[in-house]
Amino acid sequence: MPRPGPSQELSTGWGRALVFGYGVFAVAATGRSAVQLGMHADRAPLAYSLSLLAAVIYLLATTCLLLGGRTGWRLAGVAVLIELVGVLSVGTLSYLATDLFPDRTVWSHFGQGYAFLPLVLPFAGLAWLRHTRPRAAGH
């Protein structure tokens, strides 16, 4: 087999479904943070900054999955891990410290407002990245 680069694999097959999912959330989070920061940035600076962070992470993950290659794979991994930490910590905090989050973010309550997909996506992402990991390393 003439060594198919990982760039092909990342955004095809189930990867394409993942790109679609991440793309939808990139749009959703970008839109949400733009509206929140543009209209009433002073109401909940922390929540809105996190919305913006979520938007950047989703955009990064989508782009890296599309670009593929070793760097794309690595960067996507970083993005998905940040996303996982983000959704878990914001999800937990939104239940424990409600005063920190007077307004919702994509990650509040583990993504309840988005059918909990924000919680599912990073696990799907990690599973896919594990499946497509570059196999050159023999250690």
Binding site: T12, G13, W14, R16, A17, V19, F20, G21, G23, V24
Partner: peptide, 20 residues
């Protein structure tokens, strides 16, 4: 977007994308 993505993946992945 769903239809275009689905066209590129003629398998149950494409069906999943449409569902998404």
């Amino acid at each position: 977007a769903g239809a275009l993505f689905s066209l590129a993946e003629r398998s149950r992945v494409g069906t999943t994308i449409m569902l998404l």
